[in-house]
């Protein structure tokens, strides 16, 4: 398999009045052609900022400070991190090569144009299609994502569609230019559970049919287990664990990952009594604890070690890494 995207040492910081926020701090990950990488974490972990960095659409006040985002296209490689956010080079990649879908499709569609117009615009700009051809393609895409009555819906405005249908239209728009990588940022979080499972099935099917790679950003470990091949767990701007999906769920190495997996109630596996919870709350990104960021909440905290230095991301084996001193049996003795 070939790498389509390589992120290495990415740092995206926000410069605010109350100090520097290291939203993404030294993150690395690879996306293989045709695979689904799940990025999971809670609020403030930097998963969304990381995703937006890939398209160089970081919100005001933030910028990529260092690191590389290398996009491979055949023999060609482009470092997206070095491109000007408003330049022509990134615009050729955005939407055309790498597309993104968001949690709330209402905010990513313009309310004053029909969804058909917006999908057609994509096709006319990026693929230089004429209006008739673009409309035919847009209808085809809407059919493909399971939109009912696509010929009629194509002339409707976003507010006329239900949440699930809007998300389908969003996916149709994102995939209309046949991108090689799709970034999906919490695409099912705002949806009801029966609609969520329809959208996940749709993404899985399209991913296989079109062999698009996907980066799936979510806070939901259930969604990760359903769709991802590889998983990256983030906590406060850092990658804390990285592994193939089965390994991560069967044999989590970082205490944060294993504590999370234990604390979520599972359907059909009711635990008697209380859930094993994680103590404390997520620290403020502006006021990070010394050493390992998770140590104040960690069950395996070793005084003098975990609060002294931030551990490196260590390899337990060739495809499983975790940022914890306990990995590889390395402990306070050495």
């Amino acid at each position: 398999m070939q790498k389509i995207l390589e992120i290495d040492g990415l740092k995206t910081y926000f410069f605010t009045d109350s100090g520097v926020v290291r939203a993404v701090d030294d993150v690395g990950l690879d996306v293989q052609e045709g695979s689904v990488v799940g990025v999971v974490g809670e609020s403030g972990c930097g998963k969304t900022v990381m995703a937006r960095s890939i398209l160089n659409i970081i919100e005001k006040g933030g910028r990529i400070v260092s690191g590389r985002i290398v996009y491979h296209k055949g023999a060609e490689t482009v470092d997206i991190a070095s491109l000007k956010p408003t330049g022509a080079a990134i615009k050729r990649i955005r939407g055309r090569e790498i597309a993104m879908i968001f949690q709330e499709p209402m905010t990513s569609f313009s309310p004053v144009y029909t969804i058909g117009n917006q999908i057609m615009e994509m096709l006319m700009v990026h693929r230089r299609l004429g209006a008739t051809e673009a409309r035919r393609m847009a209808t085809e895409m809407l059919t493909r994502v399971g939109m009912s009555k696509p010929e009629q819906r194509i002339d409707e405005y976003p507010h006329q569609l239900s949440g699930g249908m809007r998300q389908r239209a969003m996916i149709a728009m994102a995939l209309s230019c046949d991108p090689r990588l799709l970034i999906a940022d919490e695409p099912t979080t705002a949806l009801d559970v029966t609609i969520q499972s329809q959208i996940i099935e749709l993404l899985k099917r399209l991913q296989q049919e079109l062999s698009t790679s996907i980066i799936m950003i979510t806070h939901d470990l259930g969604v990760i287990a359903e769709i991802a091949d590889e998983v990256v767990v983030m906590y406060l701007g850092k990658v804390v664990e990285q592994a193939p999906v089965r390994k991560l769920f069967r044999d989590p190495l970082h205490p944060y990952t294993s504590a999370l997996l234990r604390s979520i109630p599972r359907l059909g596996r009711k635990v008697e009594g209380r859930l094993p919870s994680i103590k404390g709350t997520i620290p403020d990104v502006r006021d990070l604890p010394p050493g390992c960021y998770f140590h104040p909440r960690c069950e395996s905290f070793i005084p003098g070690v975990c609060d002294a230095a931030l551990p490196e991301l260590r390899a337990a084996d060739d495809d499983h890494r975790a940022r914890c001193v306990l990995v590889n049996g390395v402990n306070a003795d050495d």
């Binding site: 969520q196 499972s197 470990l221 969604v223 287990a225 359903e226 999906v245 769920f249 997996l261 599972r266």
Partner: peptide, 16 residues
């Protein structure tokens, strides 16, 4: 429809 946090389980989903 509930996504199960266990990649080993591949249950048949009922698509509504």
């Amino acid at each position: 429809s509930v996504p199960v946090p266990d990649p080993e389980l591949t249950l048949e989903k009922i698509m509504l």
